[in-house]
């Protein structure tokens, strides 16, 4: 029963919860329309990339504590590079920052493989390092973003053959998110590499004995996580127009959404869809709290409490789901 719930029904249940929340939102605020949905999609963007970054690593049986710091570093790098530069220069900045995320993420994986220190400690150390590097790049919020980049997340995407009223519900930010995620995720999931990532998360020893290059796969998983985090950092710069060197609350949010999205913290299970829906659920809860005219600081408390509760619940499920007698 528990197994079925986690495997099949989880994502469907989550989707139902999301729909329920949308209905609730509409009830609280009858005027909730396409414009509000667009701003929701924009707010979700950095969170969704953070969650994607966390998901890849968690599926591979690890955890990445440096996600938020990586986003901060890539965000300030992009913002300070684009500051005062021409519009065309941004065509160089975007691939550069993405490559930076990829390399730094791979470095995370490499450190884990080489030092054999558990990933939670290594990424804690790189969290400090990346945070420091972000402060070196920009010691206060600042920088700028190219106008054409900012335009990629504002407004809606005109889709031919779709009536205007439906078009209004397709914000560019959402399209950008889905395209970025699925261009990377779908080919990966279908490939040998994707299978290897699931394999090392599920049972590292068994994967190793079946000939999976465990070390290489782990490095690739962290590199992908770095890439997603860089996308998150870029989207932060794009949507705010500046870069901030202090990491946002993305680490806890990413872990909470991963757990809520049905990805087992032990690794080897789950997909990307669940966590992404979970991000929308968590953000929509925040929107609802704001619409109910609750003090934003109190909202932060409630949000934090929900995330902690979700993580506690996930940990509890993990103990329950473990076969009796297995070592923790």
């Amino acid at each position: 029963m528990m197994r079925f719930l986690r495997r099949q029904g989880w994502v469907a249940g989550l989707l139902a919860l999301l729909v329920f929340l949308f209905v609730l939102t509409k009830l609280i605020q009858p005027g909730y329309g396409s414009g509000d949905f667009g701003s929701l999609a924009r707010a979700v963007l950095p969170y969704a990339f953070a969650v994607a970054a966390q998901t890849v690593v968690v599926i591979a049986g690890g955890i990445d504590l440096s996600v938020a710091a990586m986003m901060a570093l890539t965000s300030v790098t992009a913002a300070s590079m684009m500051n005062g530069a021409s519009e065309e220069y941004a065509y160089f900045v975007v691939p550069f920052v993405l490559a930076m995320g990829l390399v730094l993420g791979a470095l995370n994986g490499l450190l884990i493989v080489v030092t054999r220190v558990p990933d939670i400690v290594v990424t804690l150390a790189t969290l400090f390092v990346l945070q420091g590097a972000a402060l070196l790049v920009l010691d206060a919020p600042g920088g700028a973003a190219a106008e054409w980049l900012k335009a990629t997340v504002v407004g809606t995407m005109p889709i031919p053959g779709l009536p205007d009223w439906a078009d209004a519900w397709v914000p560019k930010a959402l399209v950008l998110l889905l395209v970025c995620l699925f261009v990377i995720w779908i080919p990966l999931r279908r490939s040998r590499l994707g299978l290897s990532i699931y394999a090392i998360g599920s049972n590292e020893l068994a994967a190793f004995r079946s000939g999976v290059p465990v070390a290489r796969t782990r490095i690739v998983a962290y590199a992908l996580s770095g890439l997603f985090a860089a996308l998150g950092g870029l989207s932060l710069t794009i949507s705010t127009g500046i870069g901030a060197p202090i990491p946002g609350p993305y680490l806890l949010a990413s872990v909470a959404a991963v757990v809520l999205g049905g990805v087992a913290l032990g690794g080897g299970k789950g997909g990307l869809l669940g966590p992404i829906i979970a991000v929308f659920v968590l953000r929509l809860v925040r929107t609802d709290l704001t619409l109910l005219a609750i003090d934003p600081n109190v909202t932060a408390i409630i949000e934090g409490a929900i995330m902690v509760a979700v993580v506690m619940f996930g940990a509890f499920i993990t103990i329950r789901g473990r076969p009796a007698g297995a070592t923790p």
Binding site: L111, T115, R116, V117, V121, V122, L124, A125, T126, L127, F128, V129, Q131, G132, A133, A134, L135, L136, V137, D139, P245
Partner: peptide
């Protein structure tokens, strides 16, 4: 040394010492 550099150094120290103790 700016605050950022200090954090980088501390981070590497944690990693290095942990690896050494391991």
């Amino acid at each position: 040394m700016p605050e950022g550099g200090r954090r980088i150094l501390f981070g590497f120290m944690v990693l290095f010492v942990t690896a050494a103790y391991l």
